[in-house]
Amino acid sequence: MNATRFIISGRVQGVGYREWCRREAESLGLSGTVRNLPDGTVEAVFIGDSAAVDAMLTRCRKGPPAAEVVSIGLDPVDMKAVDGFVILPSG
């Protein structure tokens, strides 16, 4: 299992990015979490096999139609699988 934290910046809040993230992650069999951060970025943690996490990175670079992704920061994290993919309250 691979767990990677993405910090996605650009126009990513108010454009359906979290819901889009949830659908895309589930389609790849990933578990994890996503939330808006106060600085205007989106934080997502994707947990699953490396190929699926890599595929999610490719998808996140584009995002949903109204998004404009500028950059994505990546950090490996020590997180166990969660049940499904959860949209967390903004934090």
Results as ranks from 00 to 15, higher is better:
1 M>K: 09
2 N>Y: 11
2 N>Q: 14
4 T>S: 12
5 R>T: 09
7 I>F: 09
9 S>E: 08
10 G>C: 02
10 G>L: 10
10 G>W: 00
11 R>N: 06
11 R>E: 10
13 Q>A: 10
13 Q>L: 11
14 G>V: 08
14 G>A: 01
14 G>I: 11
14 G>D: 07
15 V>T: 00
15 V>D: 00
15 V>Q: 08
16 G>Y: 00
17 Y>E: 12
17 Y>G: 09
17 Y>H: 03
18 R>N: 01
18 R>D: 13
19 E>W: 13
19 E>S: 13
20 W>G: 01
20 W>C: 04
20 W>M: 07
23 R>C: 07
25 A>W: 05
25 A>D: 05
27 S>G: 09
28 L>G: 02
28 L>R: 03
32 G>M: 05
32 G>Q: 06
33 T>P: 08
34 V>H: 00
35 R>A: 05
35 R>F: 04
35 R>L: 13
35 R>D: 00
36 N>P: 02
37 L>D: 11
39 D>Q: 00
39 D>I: 01
41 T>H: 06
41 T>C: 13
41 T>F: 00
42 V>Y: 04
42 V>R: 00
44 A>R: 03
45 V>A: 07
46 F>C: 08
46 F>V: 05
47 I>F: 07
47 I>V: 14
47 I>G: 09
49 D>T: 10
49 D>W: 12
49 D>G: 12
49 D>H: 07
49 D>N: 15
51 A>C: 06
52 A>Y: 03
52 A>V: 04
55 A>P: 04
55 A>N: 12
55 A>D: 13
55 A>G: 09
56 M>C: 02
56 M>N: 04
58 T>N: 15
59 R>K: 15
59 R>L: 14
59 R>I: 08
59 R>Y: 14
60 C>W: 06
60 C>G: 10
61 R>C: 04
61 R>F: 00
62 K>L: 10
62 K>M: 06
62 K>N: 06
63 G>R: 02
65 P>A: 05
67 A>T: 13
67 A>K: 02
67 A>S: 15
68 E>S: 10
69 V>S: 14
69 V>K: 08
70 V>C: 11
71 S>P: 01
71 S>T: 11
72 I>T: 03
72 I>Q: 05
73 G>S: 02
74 L>H: 05
75 D>L: 11
75 D>K: 14
76 P>S: 14
76 P>H: 06
76 P>N: 15
77 V>N: 02
77 V>D: 07
78 D>S: 11
78 D>A: 07
78 D>T: 11
78 D>Q: 08
79 M>S: 13
79 M>E: 14
80 K>Y: 09
80 K>W: 07
81 A>K: 11
81 A>W: 03
81 A>Y: 11
82 V>G: 13
82 V>M: 15
83 D>G: 08
83 D>I: 09
85 F>Q: 02
85 F>K: 00
86 V>H: 09
87 I>P: 06
88 L>I: 03
89 P>F: 11
89 P>M: 05
90 S>Y: 01
91 G>T: 02
